[in-house]
Amino acid sequence: MTDAPSPAPGRTGLRAERVSRTAGGALVLDGVTLAPRPGALTGLLGPNGSGKSTLLRLLAGVLAPETGVVTLDGDPLRGLPRRELARRVAVVGQHADTQVGLTVADAVRLGRLPHRRAWSPPTAADEEAVRSALARTGLSGLAHRTWHTLSGGERQRVQLARALAQEPRELLLDEPTNHLDVRHQLDLLALVSGLRLTCVMALHDLNLAALYCDHLVVLREGRVAAAGPVAEVLTERLVADVYGVRAAVTHPAPDGRPHVRYLGAPAGRG
């Protein structure tokens, strides 16, 4: 993995500053701060219900924080036009479906909508962006296939290609490896980790996070339990405190990235 590029002067990127959000009267996020490093892959970890998806929706501008602020290059998201935000920030969800018989190329072309005027045909720049996105995700040979003929792994790559066709600087991914087999999980994460975009990705699998992420933010009950470089965050104590599981964490050669081996729940816990 190459070093992340330095941000341009005055560009602080996407940041959440002490954001809070409630849902159904319950506090889902409580004073969370997140400042992803430019060009790096930040993994967002935590048990179910810890607030990962809500935080990603705040970063995408889909939800607004009730306290705190989300900014893009220092400007609050709430003041930015939706089209401008969509040109900068792309989102890949857990899964997608459609009742329309789109081809792969047509699905990827949807990523160009923020760059086009209403009802205007695609430009040469649009088509080049689509070709590039298809090539980067290994989908050029599938461009004319229809969505309903694709496997789950292929559909996730189409989602990623659509996001790349937006030509974003920030990419948000909400558990993109869910429903994928091991091979497709590894393929997708290897692709994402090599993009050199500012990425924030929610994950459940701690070992996948350790293998591909540069930095981690761990949520517990809507608060940040730990944040920092992968090797500093993924510890036996953290796994026990946040997930309620005993684990052995080793740092095998050659890269020294942590590996988590689960030993079971502590005595007295279900």
Rank of each mutant, 00 (worst) to 15 (best):
G141I: 00
L72P: 03
S193M: 03
T198C: 11
S6P: 00
V92I: 07
L77R: 04
R116A: 06
G244N: 03
L27R: 12
G111T: 06
G244D: 12
D75H: 14
R109V: 01
R37T: 15
V28S: 08
V233C: 12
H259S: 00
R220W: 02
D181Q: 09
A96E: 15
V200E: 08
L172Q: 02
H95T: 14
H95P: 01
S140T: 15
T103F: 02
A96H: 05
Q99T: 14
G43Y: 03
V89Y: 07
A240I: 03
L72H: 09
A133I: 00
D205K: 04
A247D: 00
P76T: 13
W147G: 08
R116G: 04
Q156A: 08
R223N: 06
Q185F: 07
A125C: 04
L27W: 01
A107S: 15
L110H: 10
G111I: 06
L208Q: 14
V89Q: 04
L211V: 07
D181L: 09
A143I: 05
A90M: 11
H184N: 07
T2Q: 11
P122K: 01
V249D: 05
G228A: 02
G74E: 11
A227H: 12
A231V: 09
S50Y: 15
R87Y: 06
A210G: 13
G68T: 12
R261H: 14
G256D: 14
P176S: 06
T42C: 13
R183M: 01
W147Q: 05
G79R: 15
V182Q: 05
S151Y: 01
A231C: 00
V28F: 12
R237I: 01
A26N: 13
L197N: 05
V130W: 03
D205I: 12
L80T: 08
S50T: 14
R257Q: 10
E84G: 11
L14C: 10
V91D: 02
A143T: 05
R57T: 02
H184C: 00
E167W: 04
R157M: 13
A16V: 07
P266M: 03
L58W: 02
L195W: 03
V217N: 03
E84V: 12
R109N: 00
L134K: 10
A16K: 08
A190S: 14
V218A: 06
A240C: 10
L173P: 05
A118S: 15
H204P: 05
L139P: 02
D97G: 12
V242Q: 07
S151R: 09
Y262S: 07
S6V: 11
D255F: 09
E154W: 13
L110W: 05
